[in-house]
Amino acid sequence: MNSGAKRWLLLAIVVAFVTSCFSASFNRYYLGVAIDVGISTIMAVSLNLINGHTGQFSLGHAGFMAVGGFTAARLTLTLSSSAPPDSAQGIALFVVAMLFGGLTAAITGLAVGLPSLRLRGDYLAIVTLGFGEIIRVVFQTSETFGAATGLTGIPKQTTLFWAMSVAAVTVYVVACLVNSTYGRGFIAVHDDEVAASAMGISPTRYKVTAFVIGAFFAGVAGALYAHHKQVLKPDGFDFMKSIDYVVMVILGGMGRTAGVIIAAVLLTVLPEFLRGFAEYRMIIYSLLIIALMLLRPQGLFAFQKKSQTRS
């Protein structure tokens, strides 16, 4: 892929920009769904680095999204409270808030991942599960973050451009990392930690790296989400939300970026369109997942075995 990758990223951002220029004429509802799709893609592709490529099992991705969302929104609200910024300042502040959200999530990821990733097996699943719940309670009780009501009145800054561009950057980063000599280490750790270690690859280092990068993008996705929905409630980031992303990664076929993007799009769009059948929605949704599971068992049960073709 080499420099072709950079060209691809540039193209994706240009497309996002051009599309965004016409977004005023779009149906507002569909526009909202399109932004949701971008955010889901960021979440699923970044989780795929951890759960797919590196073979770990994190159940706390929504927790990192919450950390990024709340800290970014808090920053925006605090800095724009005295005097509302003009539009250029607003955008600059938004970019800073996204990076800030990503960084706080990454630091949290380091704090959670470092002790638990040293251990083998399912410790990470248990620890991240607990982390997701704890972080929710922390936000629920913290006055700084609006306690149970959460944060409201967050300026609407997330446009289709930002959602698509950040999604493109996430795909670029994950794909470029994995598709390099360095990145073969993630998959080596996924396949066999003992052998990886004997080849000079530090499993802990790779696992923590994947985890921190994954958490960073989840944090940025949280910031996008906060400045999209304009309200942020701790309840919204429960265990089920983490499971949504885990399902996207599994359905997409652990470690296959293209598949995971498709799963993220489908599982974000379909529930929206099934909203009309509200009472049947969950049934249809479950049947769909079952059908997908049956049609793509290799996507579902690919924890250990997987073909070598990856992108």
């Binding site: 000599t181 073969r184 280490g185 998959i187 080596a188 996924h190 396949d191 066999d192 003992v194 052998a195 990886a196 004997a198 080849m199 690859i201 470690g255 250990q304 075995k305 997987k306 073909s307 070598q308 990856r310």
Partner: peptide
Amino acid sequence: RLFASLSVFDNVRA
């Protein structure tokens, strides 16, 4: 204990 999901080339590359 080869890396099962990697190609021959990538096993050595890793």
